[in-house]
Amino acid sequence: MPDSHPWKGRNVTGSPAVSPTAQQPLDLVPDALLAGRAADGDTAAFEALARRHGPLMRATARRLTGTLADADDVVQESLMQAWKQLDQLRDPAAVKSWLLRIVGTRSIDHLRKRRNHLALDDLENHVDAPSGQRTQDPESTAVNASRVDALKSALTLLPEEQRRCWVLKEFNDLSYEEIALTLNISPASVRGRLARARIALARTMEEWR
C-alpha cells in the first residue's frame, strides 16, 4: 500500500491513555482484519478500507461509466451498499474483489438509469470518449498519441458488454465466475465477450504499431 499520509501519530508522554484518533494507524492493518472490524460496526476500519481501495474503485468506475464525476457517484453508492451488506461478506480477506464487484454492478445501474433519461445517441457520445474523438478513425487520431491513449480510444469503440468484461478482468482481475455474477450473464458469455474484446483491441493495437 502507498504510505502517503503526511503525518504519523505518536502518543504524548503523560497524556491520558486513549486510542489513537485518526485513521492513519489502520493503514498497516490487513484487509481481513479491517473487514472483520468493519462488519462489527467499526466505522474507522471501514473508512480505512475505503481509502485503501478507493483509487482502484474510482479508476474502475471511470472506465465503466465514462467520467470521473459519474465514478465518484458510483464509488459513494458502492461504499454505502458495502457498509449495509458487510454482514454478507463471507470471506473478509476477499473484501477487495467484493468491493470491486459492487462497483461493477453499480456502474452498470448508473448507466442504465442515465440511459432512461437521455437519448441513446447522447449516451453514446457521453460515455468514454476521453479525447472527444469517438466518431473518428482511431488510427488517424491516435497516431501521435501514446499507445496507452490509443488503447483508451480503442476501448471506447468496443461494444459496452465487451468493455465491461475487459475492465473487470484486466483492471480488477476478477474470475470469469465473479464477472458473470457481476454482469448477470453466464461464465461462457464472459469467456466469449472477453475474447472478442481482446481480439478487437489487439487488432487495433497491432495495426497501430
Binding site: 481501495h53 483509487p55 464509488v75 499507445r147
Partner: peptide, 28 residues
C-alpha cells in the same frame, strides 16, 4: 495487450488520486 492494459490501469489509478485526497474525504 495485457501489458498495455496494465499500463492503462496504473495510469488510471494514479490519476484517480490517493485515498487520502479530498474526493474520498467528500465521499466519506
Amino acid at each position: 495487450l495485457s501489458e498495455l492494459g496494465n499500463e492503462l490501469l496504473t495510469a488510471d489509478v494514479a490519476e484517480a488520486g490517493s485515498g487520502g485526497d479530498d474526493w474520498m474525504q467528500t465521499i466519506l
